[in-house]
């Protein structure tokens, strides 16, 4: 099965994250051809679960972008308070974002 994906609905990043969560046995291929994205798999149920998760991840990513300021504020405050040296913290959010992305893809 080879299905074209509407890029306006699913961000490529959301598809990648969904694959890392759902597809432990590597049964799904995300294929990019020019401007289009295709999902290729023989497992129909897995495909449906994957598309659900992709939608969830897409919503989550756009929500994270929208609420980023408050997320950054709370997380930075919590970590800086735990360290107890709030004024010494240098731009913790940049580190946080990079790390989160990397770990998210496990």
């Amino acid at each position: 099965m080879n299905k074209a994906i509407d890029k306006d609905i699913y961000a490529p990043e959301a598809l990648e994250i969904a694959k890392s969560i759902i597809d432990r046995d590597n049964k799904i291929n995300i294929i990019r051809k020019g401007n289009k994205i295709f999902i290729s798999t023989d497992d129909d149920i897995l495909f449906k679960r994957f598309m659900n998760e992709a939608l969830h991840q897409d919503l989550r990513l756009s929500l994270t972008r929208k609420n980023f300021n408050i997320i950054r504020l709370i997380t930075t405050k919590a970590i800086a308070s735990a360290i107890g040296k709030e004024n010494k913290e240098k731009k913790p959010t940049k580190v946080i974002r990079r790390n989160n992305k990397r770990r998210d893809k496990r």
Binding site: H56, L59, R60, L63, T64, N67, I70, I71, I74, T75, A78, I79, A82, I83, P92, V95, I96, N99, N100, R103, D104
Partner: peptide, 20 residues
């Protein structure tokens, strides 16, 4: 310990403002 990637990962993952 507090400044570790692991702690930051958990703090960010559990922020309800990014939960659908």
């Amino acid at each position: 310990i507090i400044n570790s990637d692991t702690v930051k990962l958990c703090s960010l993952s559990s922020n309800l403002e990014s939960q659908v």
